[in-house]
Computed example of a mutant assay.
Amino acid sequence: MGDSALNRMTALVRQDIRLLLRDPAPLLIRTVMPLVIMGFMQPLFRAALQAGGAGTDVNGAEQGVPGMAVMFLFFMMNVVGFAMFREHGWNTWDRLRAGTARPVELLAARLVVLLAAAVLQLTVIFVAGGLLFGLRVSGSWLALVVVALPLALSVVMLGMALVVLCRTISQLSVVANILALVFAGLGGALTPQSAMPDWAVPFAPFAPSHWAMRGFNEAILHGGGVPDVLLPAGVLCLFAAGLAAVTLVFFRAEDRKLSWS
């Protein structure tokens, strides 16, 4: 990629950073609410882990912190959608298309800030989970990072795929919220995977949240290191790659998106 393309993308990234800093409330809410819920749910998570055979020394944060982090990260699909749909609502998308930036550059530049926000959200929740709720990682913190990065990319790419498949922000919001809740249930974010109902078990591997929780549990509960989380991290990379392919196949720069129903 030449210098001109890099300059164009850098300008777009700077604009997205300014917009994020101007209204950081969505990021703050998605970061604070998991911690608030964790404060109420920690005793239940502790009981569920102990009933599942995790031992008597667990305090519930081992399930609650990664579970709430994963669940609320998937709600970021709405933010991804708004970041794209607002250009149409503000009538600035055609101006961007008329500029020198290529359509792929417009997509790639938008991903940078969204991915950084997703990683920041996960980082704050895990660090605060350790400070506020006594989260103990029996394995490697680096293993958590190896899982968190492809998870964040998968969520952002899922949001981008919904952008190209939905015509209105209302459609995207409904689908995104449903998927976030379904993935939270199937992935073991709401309850330990060992306590999931029998009917849900066969469907769980089709949810990226399942592999994220599997990787986090390996590092937090089972003392796993980087080699132990390569499988879930690799599957998350496949999810991200597949969703990127869907985005590229169905993306049409000339499609008109509506920021209303």
Rank of each mutant, 00 (worst) to 15 (best):
G134T: 07
Q50V: 08
L190K: 03
I169D: 00
W211V: 05
F133E: 02
P205L: 13
E105N: 04
L221D: 03
A108V: 12
M160P: 00
P24M: 13
V104N: 06
V124N: 03
F250T: 10
V145F: 04
H210N: 04
D94H: 12
F206R: 01
D57C: 09
P24A: 05
A233I: 04
L27I: 06
F216A: 10
G67D: 05
P43A: 02
T10I: 00
V182P: 08
E105C: 01
R18A: 13
G215I: 02
V201L: 15
F82I: 13
A152N: 01
T191E: 08
F72W: 13
T92V: 12
L172M: 14
M76N: 11
I125A: 02
G129P: 04
G52R: 06
A51F: 05
M213G: 09
L144I: 12
S194R: 15
A180W: 08
D228P: 02
I17W: 13
A152D: 00
L231D: 01
Q15R: 14
G2R: 10
A148L: 09
L158I: 14
S140A: 08
V80H: 03
V70L: 14
A212H: 10
A116R: 08
L27V: 06
A47Q: 15
L44R: 07
P227C: 13
A200V: 00
P24Q: 01
S170L: 12
I37W: 14
W93P: 04
R22K: 15
T247Y: 07
V137R: 05
T56F: 06
C166I: 04
H88P: 09
A200H: 04
F206N: 03
A241C: 14
V146F: 04
R97C: 09
A241V: 15
G129S: 01
V58F: 03
V65K: 01
M33L: 15
S138D: 14
S138V: 11
M9T: 06
L231R: 13
G60L: 10
T31R: 14
M196C: 03
V146M: 03
N59I: 05
L107Y: 09
V201E: 12
G187Q: 01
L231S: 01
V127C: 08
A128G: 05
V155N: 00
V229T: 01
F40K: 11
Q50L: 05
V113Q: 01
L106P: 00
V146T: 01
T56Y: 11
F85Y: 15
K257C: 02
D23W: 13
I37P: 04
R46Q: 15
L149Y: 07
G185I: 12
G185P: 06
H88F: 15
W260M: 13
S4K: 12
A161Q: 03
P34M: 08
L149S: 02
L132I: 14
V226Q: 08
L12D: 10
G39P: 07
Q171P: 12
F82M: 14
L20G: 01
V249N: 10
A108C: 08
L44Q: 04
V80F: 07
